[in-house]
Design a protein around this nucleic acid. Sequence first.
DNA 1: TCACACCTTAAATCAACCTTAAACACCGGG
DNA 2: CCCGGTGTTTAAGGTTGATTTAAGGTGTGA
Lengths: 227, 227
Amino acid sequence: MRILLAEDEMSMSKALTVILTKNNYSVDAVFDGEEALSYILAGDYDLVILDVMMPKMDGFEVVRHVRDKGITIPVMMLTAKSQIDDKVEGLDLGANDYLTKPFESRELLARIRALTRTAASSADNTLRYGNITLDRASFELKGPEGNIRLPAKEFQLMEYLLLNPGVLVSSEKLFDKIWGLDFDGDINIVWTNLSYLRRKLAKVGADVKIKAVRNAGYTLEQDGAER
Amino acid sequence: MRILLAEDEMSMSKALTVILTKNNYSVDAVFDGEEALSYILAGDYDLVILDVMMPKMDGFEVVRHVRDKGITIPVMMLTAKSQIDDKVEGLDLGANDYLTKPFESRELLARIRALTRTAASSADNTLRYGNITLDRASFELKGPEGNIRLPAKEFQLMEYLLLNPGVLVSSEKLFDKIWGLDFDGDINIVWTNLSYLRRKLAKVGADVKIKAVRNAGYTLEQDGAER
DNA sequence: TCACACCTTAAATCAACCTTAAACACCGGG
DNA sequence: CCCGGTGTTTAAGGTTGATTTAAGGTGTGA
């Protein structure tokens, strides 16, 4: 899951980045509204966290521009103010949620989960497909023959595939989604991590596999199940 | 816009109904959790507002059941309590938003707008002709007797022909279009790939064929159909 | 029936993808 | 502060399947 964090106050930005990263979100931090807007337009984020008060363009402005472009990405607004008028303004302009500082990290994380929840993800924060389960809280991959805790990159790969089961996903998509636009390594990194992930899928006795489609991408599919 | 309101306290329910109705929402009010669940499953609502504390089944339970059925309708939870733990629980169970009583109607309405703001668009990415279809996302050629994933070059040939059904296309045109002007191989390559493609068309039971016109090119035509 | 245009097949080549291992970076404990 | 462990990235060689080449085949019109 990729999150764009737009927060000009450095200590807050750092703290949030640490919290989010520890929870296996891949975070890009920007420090003013204009940067935020351009990153949103260019990048492929699952969520944007916007401070209301920022240099150059405030959070409200950013949201307005984003929505004007028809982009429906979930936006969470942060502010020190707690007046209802501000909340109403933010939500009317297209923010999906609103959090007032100070807040607890548990609440932040819970709200992020709520905002990024999709049809494929269940209420108890686990993803299932075939005989495997991915626990998004503990990052554990569970199968009939054991459980393994996945490292961040492999977790994100598995998560993305489980959110799109049976869908063909190009390796560039995975690359952008998990390593971000500014990572300048080789696409090879995707293959390597998929390889590690496959080994772990085998180890827990999964009946699903990550199938490569040459020149096209990957799909997660269940063993004896031809659609 | 249809809203299901599940709130057992009569005065609150009345008040909410008035507010929502005034704002052009059509509201169905129910007064316990079981009722709420059966209405959600039966009805076609754009949003559900759920009180946490209700007779027979509380709001958390209702959400859990709804999500277990794979229903992704936006849910807003209402509660008198304001502890973070409750918020976390509610959001984790699948609610999309959370509002603590008492609240101002402006905030309620703003949050409803945020939750029901939707944008969904999906382009149909398949080409059809005769009894075959070509899925441009998955590179699959589908016919009555089966599906085959086409390799890139054959796919491009098929795609070009399907975009110009019945039109006479010279082999030079295909050559330039697919292999590019700087490719210095033989025109033979087109014949080879057309040959492979024809075999696959036959395999999926297609009623269309690629007809060669001596000294002119090719046309895609349907079996017994002279246009 | 000859030449030309096109077809088919199979083998050779090439690119994409996989796997492994080693290098590197980071972090918590001693 | 150093050390070992964990996680991430780079690099290199292997495998597989797509692409291209090449060579022989078939049909058709002059």
